[in-house]
Amino acid sequence: MASGEFNCPSCAAPLHVENRFSKVVICQYCGQTCSVSPEGLDPTGEKAQLADFESILSVGSTGSFRGRDFKVLGRLRYKYDGGFWDEWFLSMSDGKKLWLQEDEGEFTAFEKETLTAPLPPFDEISVGSMLDVNGKQAFVTEKNKALIAGGVGELYFAVTPGMTANCVDGNCGGQLLSIEFTPDEINLSVGEEVPIDSIVVNS
């Protein structure tokens, strides 16, 4: 797997790939999405530059969260009928990966969890009802067909702007759930809301 210094195949800007597990890197200058392969960068993805809405985080920024240092590697923006939300991909000092979801100014820290039991199809899930997730009852708070509007930096799964994802949000006894249905897989993330002042960004 590649990691190190590259040049954007589209605009030749320097492109640093930090995480050796990254599958996609998006040029912060021109928005070109590139697949990361052992041979280097493949500019097969789409180009989509994000409007830079103000946030305490930015790609490349470092800081600490609950006693662990982090570096922000990537940002992914989802659009849906009701607006958009951003997901920040963080590499933690203990080697773990963390997603910080930023939606309407609120942050939720998500970590991936394995689905141990099948879920009903996306279309059969109703907002306001209970859903069995890994043997626990989760209350479904929202359901969206979201569009990946674009991203910046590097991400550890293959994604291109324009892809759609079916997303279900839930609450299981105060723990927040995010389930993403893609044509190939279903991803479960479990997390909790975090106060903004628990994310300390180095100046």
């Binding site: 009701g82 109703s126 907002v127 306001g128 209350f139 479904v140 708070t141 929202e142 359901k143």
Partner: peptide, 14 residues
């Protein structure tokens, strides 16, 4: 609060 869709079913609960 449940925001309802055109079919009268909840689309978001907050």
């Amino acid at each position: 609060e449940a925001r309802l869709g055109d079919d009268g079913k909840p689309v978001e609960v907050e």
